[in-house]
Design a protein around this nucleic acid. Structure first.
Lengths: 362, 362
DNA sequence: TCCAGTCATGACATCGATGTCATGACACCG
DNA sequence: CGGTGTCATGACATCGATGTCATGACTGGA
């Protein structure tokens, strides 16, 4: 591959002049510029980043560590493809900055993370983003102080800048909407409580109930590890069966995520229950491949992974430019409720506005 | 960030000696080595790839161009996430080679490809892989001769080394299996014929019929653009309705892919048809999030995207090492049939082995 | 005891782009 | 017409790692 020296020789100028043309640095005569440009075209010259970066001490590279690419072959992903959307959001946010985003994949093995970080450091990345596949606490090796790091979809105990979904608020918004559609007996099938989503979302659910003055019934809140091979679906079937045989059965099943909701569709049908008239179903994530394809389409709430990525990208650019280096509060991101056919609006006489509910309560 | 000069000064040796320790180059005295290693630890030294690569004229980087990350927000992806699995396979194949895989995303805009290629060339990648989101013909800008390129999940007219799925064979294998389970009236709901999969898979379907001496009935082979917003599901419903009202209706619906199959599940149920007893359904892709979660689980054939990636990675390493530079034949990759509950095994008297079929035919 | 060979180490040049400083040719002003 | 400023250009040093060659200290065999 040719260098500026080759170009310079061909154009009959000095290497420095070629450099000037490349970077629109100093002044260059019209004819000289043309000669240089012609020489570059002829030789198919492409500037070497290595040399450039060595001089400039800037790589223009952002490192991205994720399991997005490798973990998707496990059939049992509780989540959809969040990390992927996050990566997408990051790319979008960084696109305009002229940075090159370099993605490294953990290949599902977290023990490879330190190695990946080293590789990135050897490329002298200007910043790093770590993307987790679901909302969780992590513990990364400590980086040299001058390389900024942002956590996306996760957080740590050291107060590293983080961007995470606002699970509590999202679930609260969805349940609020269910209540205002007239539902009173709302069941919640939660994800495992060892996941952040399995703790925060039920909190949001209870907040919405409380806010509306509805009683919290422990029989309607169950953690279901639906995701386990073999027994998962069985557990789910069993839990739903019990709930539907309560004296006051729920009118809607709120699921920990859309994938669980998809499974619930099958179960309700095999039970001979009509959807949504007999029982309504709501999801969480707005995983469109599921939510829009199911029949009836799934009411759910949008977990804006894209936005999480975008915010993480923006935060990183801030840090790189030196802003907000001592702001340790996490960024919470929420999204809208998507109201689709899987939840009935109950008959008008049952539909109570929040105001009415609060009045009744008094 | 510290350099070998810093390390050298701290250890009281010359930079060259530090380099020797780093690369286990020449001989280094025991005590010296320890001193150098201690200095590196103390300073948190990380080797600069830029400088290294400049000297070595080798980047150790493989460039990967894909739309995997950006295109997934379109709800209407005919495919699952093929490109993602491919990327994963590539990573796995290249992991052991010590190469760093750098992924760049087209962000859904193919016009950005030339720019991405330039960025990669400026990083002096040692090879490039282009991953398409579905099996198709592409036309990339010409690269300098000394940078090898492999196409994954696509091919071009120039005979660039390519790795693609063997759609014909895969579909043939699946239909063969259906036939040997006793099915005789097999409908095929194909993808759009402007996609490679929409041409090659029906070919495989017909080959299997022919092989078994079964007549080809044009009424049973329909292209359905199921993926269109609004009218897509309607088209699919209509096509299925017509097929099921034929004098000799099909006993099984072969779908262009798993996503279409998922939609067919909903349609059959809304028609009140029992699955799989009244009508069986088969997919294509073995997109596990769908195939294993649906009830009943979906019979399908595994399109081994992972393997496509792995083969592409291997092929590239070959090219880099100079092997097979003038082998222009594409690599075809196939996978196994996954037999699950969505297809009935017909009563024994209907089950005919291929051998028997061939005998009858004579 | 002397020479060849090995070991441990360092001086210096090099990779390609670019920052710094220098130089010569003009142009414009007083 | 001399001085000052701008323009166009080039010489040279620099970034960090490493290949090449040189040097001095030993060791072992003749």
């Amino acid at each position: 591959m040719s260098t500026i020296y080759d170009v310079a020789r061909r154009a009959g100028v000095s290497p420095k002049t070629v450099s000037r043309v490349l970077n629109s640095d100093g002044p260059v005569g019209e004819k000289t510029r043309e000669a240089v440009e012609a020489a570059m075209r002829d030789l198919g010259y492409v500037r070497s980043n290595a040399a450039r970066m060595m001089r400039a001490q800037k790589s223009g590279i952002i490192g991205l560590i994720t399991g997005a690419i490798s973990t998707k072959n496990q059939p049992s992903t509780q989540q959809g493809l969040p990390d992927l959307y996050i990566v997408q959001g990051i790319q979008r946010a960084l696109e305009s900055s002229g940075m090159t985003v370099m993605i490294a994949d953990t290949a599902g093995r977290n023990d490879r993370v330190p190695h990946l970080i080293d590789t990135f450091l050897s490329h002298r990345v200007e910043g790093l983003i770590y993307v987790a596949e679901y909302h969780q606490e992590v513990n990364l090796p400590v980086l040299p102080d001058d390389t900024p790091l942002v956590l996306a979809n996760c957080f740590d105990a050291r107060g590293t800048p983080a961007v995470v979904p606002d699970d509590r608020r999202l679930q609260r918004d969805l349940v609020r909407r269910l209540i205002s559609a007239g539902h009173r007996r709302i069941a919640y099938l939660s994800l495992r409580p060892d996941m952040a989503a399995g703790r925060l979302r039920p909190q949001g659910y209870r907040e919405a109930l409380e806010e509306a003055g509805l009683p919290f019934d422990p029989a309607l809140l169950q953690h279901v590890d639906f995701d386990q091979v073999e027994i998962g679906p069985q557990l789910l079937w069993d839990t739903i069966d019990r709930m539907l045989h309560l004296d006051q059965p729920p009118t809607v099943l709120c699921c920990g995520n859309d994938q669980m909701a998809m499974m619930v569709y099958g179960i309700l049908r095999s039970m001979g229950r009509k959807m949504p008239d007999e029982v309504s179903v709501a999801g969480f994530d707005n995983y469109r491949a599921i939510a829009e394809t199911l029949y009836p389409p799934l009411t759910t709430v949008d977990l804006p992974y894209n936005a999480i990525g975008a915010r993480a990208g923006e935060r990183l650019m801030q840090l790189i430019s030196g802003e907000g280096r001592d702001d340790h509060s996490p960024v919470l991101v929420a999204g809208p409720v998507y109201w689709r056919g899987s939840v009935t609006e109950l008959r008008p006489e049952n539909v109570i506005s929040f105001k009415t509910l609060r009045e009744e309560k008094q």
